[in-house]
Nucleic acid binder design. Structure first.
Length: 654
DNA sequence: AGCACGCCGACT
DNA sequence: GTCGGCGTGCTC
């Protein structure tokens, strides 16, 4: 006789592919009170004494499993940390990427903090309903009511941000995009639903949080970011279980246990920080798309540029478009082909000098450079070959004027350097970094305040007084009132990187810097011409993406097609690739050897066959994982047989 | 991952 | 006859 509620299914918290399914357990009488779907449990596995953590997923009818059931050993905590929505999301994302659901849950559910949980449980008994914001902001610059209706109408849109800064009530400044997204979130929460706002890094997060501080009560906002301690993280997480909130965070915010999700917004989805580095490597954009589909929320991809991925969704009709009305087009002058003769001979054209000199009378001027340091790259003076460390072959660089060249990998000083190619002993500096640019500009503009900001030493804000701000791309300080001019110096050098995405990345770096300019200010894009320069000047990034997409389609490149890379021992990779129905794939690239003695094949396939490819590869991973054994001891080689790794849609692969 | 089951060589 | 090698498979 089935006793309802006495048998439950549990997902084990294990990275082993063969354990990625539900196991049935009996719930003993003593645990009935706290056993409910979503709680963490301890369950025995195979032999008494061995226990595994897991999540109670659901109650089940007895008899689904023919063998004898073990009993749940312990309910770790009565808090149902795995909500049904997040479970559905984890399962779908894992299946889609040939990974395990528990790997996704490790991203979605922070480690338990007993004290935090106790405090939360105690407060919860006398919880007061959230105060819904009474002031609902109006965002100007878009068609009337357009931003307000997004969450109400459950719209899915690609939203073009307004390239301006906005002054906040506390006197600080933020990108207009942050005002737009915060307003959409406030409308959503005013309707009683949760909004998730995702940003790439803490600098964008700070802007969004400052805007929200002006628009919504502070206890309505939950943060998720990489700087949080485990305790803070768990506190934010638990508060999401209380009721509708505005969740602001990095890519992990997409997994927040949102109560009644009404909106997902992603700012600047082309930023590489949205690519999850942990298996199964689910991109935040994909997590957002799957979650939106499951929960029927509104969905916003906002940016100055438009990623080719989003363009694809627009052309499919999956996303609508919202553009500013009236259009705001910053003033940008490209200088490719202009005679370059300024005080710094080859880098800064005279026109740019004049723009900077003029603008410095009014306020801060931004100079964007590609690399930090003084001379980020060095070469042999005799033969011109790039200089490599004599110890480890790492690249050499000079961090400050007059400093001894050092290796970026091993840190050794290159005092008695000898060229590998021609035995030359003299180095020359081939490029200028932010510090050298600052030195040069400091000499050219004596008496002007110089500020250097890069990834290692970021400066977050600058005031509106005149100053020259030299920043590496992505590390530009937020200027009060906006930069009076923006010089984008190293466009040419940024574009030489060997990647399918260079142009997309450059457009993002440039447009995000230009968007920091004051109204009417001039930006100078140095050394870039052609369609890219035209794209920036006309501010028509959707047109760029629309032209890029068919190109990718003809060459079978993402995002027109999907990719799966399979890495492992040659025979295992061959078997896994051979296990995919050839009808479902376009072609296979490789196998090519990787740096660690394994091989990698890349499978290309259409979106429609994603499920078939993922299922086939998942099968191979499971079989490989349960069948592999240690090689004969004593004989060196690897400590163990290499695992078979599958990664879908790696943005850096081509 | 662990751990048990299972089928072939040296031992009391 | 059996003790134990580690190849193979399973974990509710």
């Amino acid at each position: 006789m089935a006793v309802p509620g006495r048998v439950c299914r549990v997902l084990l918290d294990s990275p082993l592919p063969q354990l990625d399914r539900l196991f049935d357990y009996r719930v003993p009488e003593r645990l009935v009170e706290h056993a409910q779907p979503g709680v963490r449990v301890k369950v025995p596995l195979r032999s008494a004494g061995r226990v595994s953590d897991g999540y109670l997923i659901e109650f089940a009818d007895e008899g689904d499993y023919p063998g004898a059931l073990s009993e749940v050993e312990e309910v770790i905590s009565p808090v149902p940390v795995l909500t049904p929505e997040v479970w559905a999301l984890a399962r779908a994302l894992a299946d889609r990427s040939a990974g395990g659901a528990s790997d996704i849950l490790r991203l979605a559910i922070p480690p338990r903090q007993v004290r935090v949980e106790k405090t939360w449980l105690a407060k919860r008994t006398d919880a007061v309903p959230f105060a819904v914001p009474t002031f609902v902001p109006v965002v100007r610059g878009y068609p009337a009511g357009r931003i307000a209706q997004l969450s109400r109408e459950r719209e899915r849109v690609a939203l073009q941000a307004i390239p301006r800064l906005a002054e906040l009530p506390d006197g600080s400044w933020a990108g207009h995009w942050a005002v737009t997204l915060a307003a959409a979130a406030v409308h959503c929460i005013a309707e009683g639903r949760t909004a998730i706002l995702a940003v790439p890094d803490y600098r964008d997060q700070d802007q969004l949080e400052r805007v929200l501080a002006a628009l919504a009560p502070p206890d309505l906002v939950s943060r998720f970011d990489a700087r949080q301690s485990n305790a803070e993280r768990y506190r934010s997480f638990l508060r999401c279980l209380d009721g509708p909130r505005i969740v602001v965070g990095n890519r992990s915010a997409l997994y927040a246990p949102a109560t009644d999700l009404g909106l997902i917004a992603i700012w600047d989805d082309g930023d590489p920080l949205y690519a999850e580095p942990l298996a199964p490597y689910v991109h935040a954009r994909d997590a957002a798309l799957v979650r939106q589909q499951q929960q029927g929320s509104a969905l916003i991809f906002a940016g100055h540029t438009r990623s080719v991925e989003v363009q694809r969704l627009v052309e499919l009709g999956w996303l609508g478009e919202i553009t500013p009305d009236p259009l705001v087009i910053p003033r940008v002058i490209p200088t490719a082909g202009q005679p370059e003769r300024g005080p710094s001979q080859d880098r800064i054209p005279s026109g740019a000098w004049q723009v900077a000199r003029e603008a410095l009378k009014d306020g801060p001027v931004l100079v964007q450079v590609a690399r930090p340091g003084y001379a980020p790259t060095l070469a042999c003076r005799t033969c011109g070959q790039p200089a490599r460390c004599n110890h480890c072959e790492g690249p050499l660089n000079v961090s400050r004027s007059g400093a001894v060249p050092t290796c970026r990998w091993c840190g050794k000083l290159a005092t008695d350097w000898i060229c590998d190619h021609c035995q030359g002993t003299e180095l020359k500096q081939t490029t200028a970094g932010s510090v050298r640019t600052a030195d040069e500009l400091g000499r050219a503009f004596p008496g002007v305040r110089i500020i250097v900001s890069d990834g290692d030493h970021p400066v977050l804000t600058v005031d509106s007084a005149p100053s020259l701000v030299i920043a590496t791309r992505g590390a530009e300080p937020l200027p009060g009132g906006g930069y009076r001019a923006v010089l984008l110096l190293d466009g040419e050098r940024m574009l030489v990187r060997e990647s399918l995405r260079v142009a997309d990345d450059c457009l993002r770096w440039w447009s995000n810097a230009i968007a920091l300019a004051a109204p009417g200010a001039t930006s100078v894009l140095v050394g870039v011409g052609g369609f890219l320069a035209q794209t920036v000047v006309t501010w028509q990034y959707a047109r760029y993406a629309a032209r890029e997409l068919p190109d990718r389609r003809t060459h079978h490149l993402p995002p027109a097609v999907r990719l799966a890379s399979v890495t492992g021992a040659p025979d295992a990779v061959a078997k896994a690739v051979g296990g995919i129905d050839p009808e479902t794939i376009i072609d296979v690239l490789g196998p090519a050897p990787t740096s660690d003695g394994l091989v990698r094949s890349i499978v290309r396939f259409e979106y429609a066959h994603g499920q078939a490819v993922a299922e086939a590869l998942r099968g191979s991973v499971v079989r490989h994982s349960s069948g592999r054994r240690r090689p004969p001891p004593g004989k060196g080689g690897y400590g163990r047989t290499p695992t078979l790794k599958v990664r879908f849609d790696d943005p850096e692969i081509l």
